[in-house]
Write a protein that binds this DNA or RNA. Structure first.
Lengths: 167, 167
DNA sequence: TCATAACATGTTATAACATAACACCTACTT
DNA sequence: AAGTAGGTGTTATGTTATAACATGTTATGA
C-alpha cells in the first residue's frame, strides 16, 4: 500500500503520519464524545470506525461490509449504511461524494463542512484545513439562503503520481 | 412547479429569470461552441441539453431517459450517460453530486469548477458565481497538488421554503 | 470509389450503490 | 408487566452507472 517511500518527493498534503498515534487518538476522541453525549459506542460502531481509520482512505460501503463479514459481523447493506449515517451525523465519518466512499474524519473539531483533496490516480484523500490549505470560504450565508452543509472536493493528481507516471 | 409566486419574499439566488431568453441564449451559445470546435451538435445531444435547460433544475439520468423516450429517442441508460459525459466534458452540463443529478450550465464562461447552492426542501439549485456570492476560493494549487476540478455544493434551505413551512 | 478510421448511437446484461419494511432483542421506564 | 426507544438482523427491492459488443454514419485519403 505504501510503495513509494524511498527518496521521491511527496506531496505535503498527503504526508504520512504516525498511524499508531492517529488511531489511538481517534478512538479515544470518539469514545469520549460518545460518553459525554450518552451515546452507545457499540462493538459494531467501533468496528466500522476502526475499519475506516485503519485504512485511512475512503472505502465504499460494500468494502466496509466485506471487512465486517471477515470480522464476524453481519454484512448486509443496511448494517453499513446505518452505522455510517450515525457516525456521519456526529462528524466522525465523511462521505466523499466523488467516489461514493466514506472516510474517517481526521479533524479534531469534527467540522461538518470539511474540504477534501482527492488524487484521481491513487485515490488517496486528504482532509484539508481551510487555513493551512489556502482555501477560503467566505460567509456561509448567501443572500437569504441558510447553508447547513458544504461539500468541497478537489480532484487532481498528487505529486507522487504525477512524477511517477507517464500521465 | 412554481406555486409560490404571490408576494412572498424570495431568495435572490433563486430568482426567476426569463426562461425564453435563457433558453435561446444557451442554445445559441452551445451551437456556436460546437461549430467553433468542430463538434457535432447531434439531435440527441441537442435534445438532452434542451431537456436540461428547459427544466432548469437538476434531473437524474433516468428522468432524462424518460424524457428522451417520450420524444422518440432511445432510452437505455448508456444513451443518457454518454451524452451527459460529453456535455460535461465541454462544460455545458454539471453533475450535482449530492443529488446524483445533472443540470445545464448557466454560466456563460463554462467554468469547470462551479459552485452550487441546493435547497434540500424544494431541490432547487442555483449555480453561483464566486464573485457575486461572496464565496471565494484561493489558488487552486495546494502544496504540490494539481487541482483539476473542484466540486462545491452548499446544501441548506432557501428563504421560500424556510418561510413557507413549519420546518 | 472504396477502404478505413473516427465518431455516434443502439442494445443487452450486469455491476455498484442505497433504502424500505419488517422482525427481534435488549435496556430502561412507568 | 407493559410500553418505549434504540440497536441490530434479514429479505427484498430500488436506484444509479458501466461494460461489452453491434450497428450506423461521416470524413479522409489512397
Amino acid at each position: 500500500m505504501n510503495k513509494k517511500r524511498e527518496g521521491k518527493t511527496t506531496s505535503k498534503i498527503f504526508d504520512d503520519h504516525d498511524h499508531g498515534i492517529c488511531f489511538d487518538d481517534a478512538i479515544e476522541q470518539i469514545e469520549n464524545y460518545f460518553l459525554k453525549k450518552n451515546l452507545q459506542f457499540t462493538p459494531l460502531r467501533r468496528k466500522v470506525f476502526e475499519i475506516l481509520i485503519k485504512d485511512h482512505k475512503p472505502l465504499g460501503a460494500y468494502e466496509i461490509l466485506e471487512a465486517l463479514g471477515r470480522d464476524g459481523f453481519s454484512s448486509s447493506p443496511p448494517i453499513a449504511y446505518r452505522v455510517l449515517d450515525f457516525l456521519m451525523k456526529h462528524g466522525f465519518v465523511h462521505k466523499i461524494q466523488g467516489l461514493n466512499a466514506f472516510i474517517a474524519c481526521s479533524n479534531p473539531n469534527h467540522s461538518h463542512s470539511p474540504a477534501f483533496v482527492i488524487c484521481r490516480k491513487c485515490e488517496k484523500v486528504a482532509e484539508v484545513d481551510e487555513r493551512k490549505s489556502g482555501i477560503s470560504f467566505a460567509s456561509p450565508n448567501i443572500e437569504n439562503f441558510e447553508v447547513e452543509k458544504t461539500t468541497v472536493e478537489m480532484t487532481g493528481v498528487c505529486t507522487t503520481c504525477s512524477s511517477a507516471a507517464i500521465m
